[in-house]
Amino acid sequence: MTREEITRRVIAVTARELGKKPEEIKEPHHFAFDLGADSLKSIELVAAFEEEFDLNLNEEEALKVQTVGAAIDFFVQLLPE
């Protein structure tokens, strides 16, 4: 999967889960501080990423990801082109 495709899908899922418009979401945004995700919402977001990309993620590694950009990088590594 290309980086562009992953970026588009990460932003779309983030927007849907956190009740934002896709254009409001930028790569530097922190899920908690900038986008208002509390701890449960963060877990639900990771669960939504799992569904979106059909993956079973390692809990500790996945929950370490704090920003939209880091999430994109995380999935770029997991999903080769």
Partner: peptide
């Protein structure tokens, strides 16, 4: 099961 897998149950709890 990870916390991601049980998140729906936790949402129901909350």
């Amino acid at each position: 099961l990870t916390v991601m897998k049980v998140a729906k149950i936790q949402r129901w709890v909350m």
